[in-house]
Design a protein around this nucleic acid. Structure first.
Length: 334
DNA sequence: GCCCTATGTTAAA
DNA sequence: TTAACCTAGGGCT
């Protein structure tokens, strides 16, 4: 599943390739036929991400709200002016990254068998809920949890219910997050998944950030110190910004990768970082980590039974609220 | 082919 | 707390 970083990349891509353009909207699968007819032919004014939701603001006060859920994904294609990833959304294998990238200038179908002119979208493959077509390219959506056309007022209401998004990081957001997570005695690991506490974090980022800060996942939100809440916010913003840049979730520091591939994720240390103590230079010099081997990308997520990269203790896993929680009992003891 | 899994959310019980 | 839902891929028979 796409966590917030994927949705922000999507919004960016929609703005880049479809922004300001009239779009032909259809539902090859049929489940979105009514919604498609409401926005077919309208201009996409802008795309915005808030947590895991994307809002496409069309002309005539129509908003398309999309939530990918566990399985949703977008595929893209187009002519030579059409750039960016060719697929963003649900990964099908552990650590899978986006398909395409720099050479995604044409549809896979149009490219098959050699370089050819772009001749329009391919025949829909599988269950395509929505297809958007501009003069220069197309986008197919499949498997979303939510996909609807609503009014600006309705979209504002949805967004009001969401917590602050570290990838938007507006003034006061960090304090708002701290206030919300410290309000309840619910375990921190559960709070980080609640979209009204913090919008955009999912099962990978929550496990990884708790490890990076050496925090016990079961620690009640109430017992978090203000500086610990601030450190959570800062580190989440840092590693998710990396996710936006890389199109992949890479949370390990360079020093923790035997291959030596990639650059530092951020502050170069994995223990609790006091607010304001992060070396700015280390942040600035961050480079793309997209070539980091899959098996070196995470500290604890899906590493149960394997030795912790820091202390060698076997990484643990248990079910918490219906999702799998991964942590190191050595580094994150209570 | 069948079963399991998945970075998620919602509604019913 | 459980089930349902959305879809595709991998491993198995």
């Amino acid at each position: 599943m796409p966590e917030g970083h994927s949705v922000h990349r999507l919004a960016r891509q929609f703005n880049d390739v479809f922004g300001g353009a009239p779009l032909a909207v259809s539902s090859p699968q049929g489940k979105f036929a009514a919604g498609a007819s409401l926005i077919d032919g309208l201009e996409l004014e802008r795309a915005e991400a808030h947590g895991k939701q994307m809002f496409l603001y069309f002309s005539q006060d129509r908003v398309m709200r999309v939530h990918l859920g566990l399985y949703g994904a977008w595929d893209f294609g187009g002519d030579s002016t059409f750039t960016g990833a060719s697929s963003i959304g649900a990964p099908r294998r552990i650590g899978e990254q986006e398909v395409g990238g720099a050479d995604a200038s044409a549809s896979p179908a149009a490219n098959a068998g050699g370089r050819r002119e772009y001749t329009g979208p391919p025949e829909p493959q599988g269950a395509v809920r929505v297809r958007l077509v501009s003069p220069h390219g197309w986008a197919d959506l499949r498997g979303p949890t939510a996909c609807e056309v609503i009014s600006p007022a309705e979209s504002a209401a949805v967004r009001r219910k969401l917590g602050p998004d570290p990838l938007n990081n507006a003034p006061g957001d960090a304090e708002e997050f701290s206030r919300r997570i410290r309000k309840s005695s619910t375990p921190t690991a559960l709070q980080l998944m609640k979209q009204d506490v913090l919008a955009g974090v999912g099962n990978v980022y929550r496990a990884e950030v708790l490890f990076r800060l050496g925090l016990d996942p079961m620690l009640p939100g109430k017992s978090l110190q203000p500086d610990e809440a601030a450190a959570l916010w800062n580190d989440i913003a840092l590693i998710m910004a990396d996710g936006v840049r890389d199109g992949r979730i890479i949370t390990t520091e360079l020093a923790d990768r035997p291959s030596g591939v990639g650059a530092e994720v951020g502050h170069g240390q994995s223990r609790l970082v006091r607010p304001g103590s992060e070396p700015a230079a280390a942040v600035r010099k961050r480079n793309a980590n997209k070539d980091v081997p899959v098996e070196e990308a995470h500290y604890v997520y899906k590493r149960e039974g394997l030795p912790c990269r820091h202390c060698g203790t076997e990484v643990a896993m248990k079910d918490l609220g219906g999702r799998k929680l991964y942590w190191c009992p050595g580094c994150q003891a209570g």
